[in-house]
């Protein structure tokens, strides 16, 4: 059994970070994981995406044509990747920046106002954590306890940011229900 999650948006949204948190959480739960960034000549405001592969057996190809799930943080990402997601997957649509649907009837599309929810709990910059948490709550790829633990660890060197991000996590979980 293997799942692949494409995280996509623009540089500065914390795309690579939430991919890393998911990969870390899956590793903590005993899965094989690989986190594969796009590392082309990118810049702030340019495209940024990473793929997280989670499996119960050693991971073969880090190159995946049709990922299982998508977390799309801006419109170009949704337009680019929604058509290639496997049927039955979860597509998180960041409604704060995206005014269209994925156009897929065979996936579970979860629309979340990530920036507004993050602003409500203290800072719109935490919209990436809102998106990640909503996605995990819906896809159930890892447990919410492990996710919480890994968010805390990610911000361990900047503990002031932990309460904000945990609130953002709760907001994301609620949005997925």
């Amino acid at each position: 059994m293997q799942s692949e999650v494409m995280f996509a948006g623009f540089g500065g949204q914390g795309i690579l970070l939430i991919g890393k948190i998911l990969a870390h959480a899956a590793m903590e739960e005993g899965f094989e994981v690989a986190w594969i960034p796009s590392y082309g000549p990118e810049m702030r405001g340019g495209t940024a995406y990473c793929l997280v592969v989670i499996g119960d057996r050693p991971i073969g190809s880090p190159i995946i044509k049709n990922p299982s799930h998508l977390v799309a943080m801006n419109r170009p990402s949704l337009e680019k990747f929604a058509p290639v997601i496997k049927p039955g997957g979860v597509i998180l649509n960041n409604m704060s920046l995206i005014s269209i649907d994925s156009g897929r009837a065979d996936v579970d599309e979860l629309k979340v106002l990530t920036a507004e929810l993050a602003a409500d709990v203290g800072n719109a910059k935490a919209s990436n954590i809102v998106a990640l948490s909503a996605f995990v709550a819906r896809s159930k790829l890892v447990s919410l306890d492990t996710l919480k633990h890994c968010i805390e660890e990610e911000f361990a060197k900047r503990p002031k940011l932990i309460p904000l991000n945990l609130k953002a996590m709760d907001a994301g979980i609620q949005a997925a229900q």
């Binding site: 890393k20 990969a23 590793m27 094989e32 994981v33 690989a34 986190w35 594969i36 960034p37 590392y39 991971i59 880090p62």
Partner: peptide, 10 residues
């Protein structure tokens, strides 16, 4: 190759 350097794995 570049991916071996850039990829994260346990």
């Amino acid at each position: 190759d570049g991916l071996i350097g850039q990829m994260m794995e346990p």
